[in-house]
Amino acid sequence: MSLSIEQLAADVRADREVHSARKRPFMRWEWLLLLVVLATFGLNSWASPYFLDPYTLSDLTYNFTEKAIVALPMALLIIAREIDISVAGIMALASVAMGMTAAAGYGLPAIVAMGVLAGLLCGALNGALVTLFKVPAIVATIGTMSLYRGIAYAVLGDKVLKAYPPDFAYFGQGYAFSLVSFELVLFLALALVSGIVLHFTVVGRRIVAIGSNPTAALFSGIRVERYRFWLFTLTGGAAGLASVLLTSRLGSTRPSIAVGWELDIITITILGGVSILGGKGSIVGVVLAALLMGLVTFGLGLLNVPGIVMSIVVGGLLIGVIALPILFRQMRAARRGT
């Protein structure tokens, strides 16, 4: 590996940025998100009389759980300075794999295993492209995104797979207890595990180290490429799992399943405070951002706003929530300067 003075200087600067970020009030971004979540919750209950109802609130969680389950490993991946744009494509391919397994007459465990396994394999291919062939992640996964969904289209064409056994419906439609869905419990459990891994284990600290300075991480003995590979594989596996949930909820597989979800998933991650430059981010932020996305889209849905108009709000939210604090800081700095 070649090291230039310039690269070193840039790395030192990046480290300084990370440290100065640490000095800011504890979890400032997360508090801001929490405020926005509460405000949106309040706004929803004020705008629609149907909102504050146990059944409505239970339904609401379906709006974000599947996407949020992929956003968790996506956060780890982006913290490690990588990204996966192919997650929605993986979901389509995993769904097709499950549909074919079901059509071949296999039982429930085989169907679910196939979905997750397909996801893991797709993720491993992404990881191999990035680590073995040294393709930048964004480019590699733009390619595999077309590849995975393309295979789904090639296999299915305009057909639909829906030979799923009745038990399969539990994953996407079942309730763990009373009104708490299986999806929500699964998401919360995975969020807890991701949070512990990222914030309290050596593995998590190493992921942050790789993201803040890969060169330094490598020189301190972290197997950087191995971490990258497994993070991609993990993200693929999570996409496979999300595909199990979504396919179960819809009860059928079409090649266009989850189209465009990669943007929603990445939006949740960025909105959650994960820095696209790597080395920074928290799972609490991602969970709050997922909740916020769910609240906003569900609230607008209650107000009969069409989905495509919601995308204006979601896109505006992404830019606004990131731009406003920067704008305020610049204005304050400018006032201090004059």
Binding site: L147, R149, A154
Partner: peptide
């Protein structure tokens, strides 16, 4: 239906 897979 194969177009997308092949260009991918």
């Amino acid at each position: 239906f194969w177009q997308m897979a092949i260009s991918g």
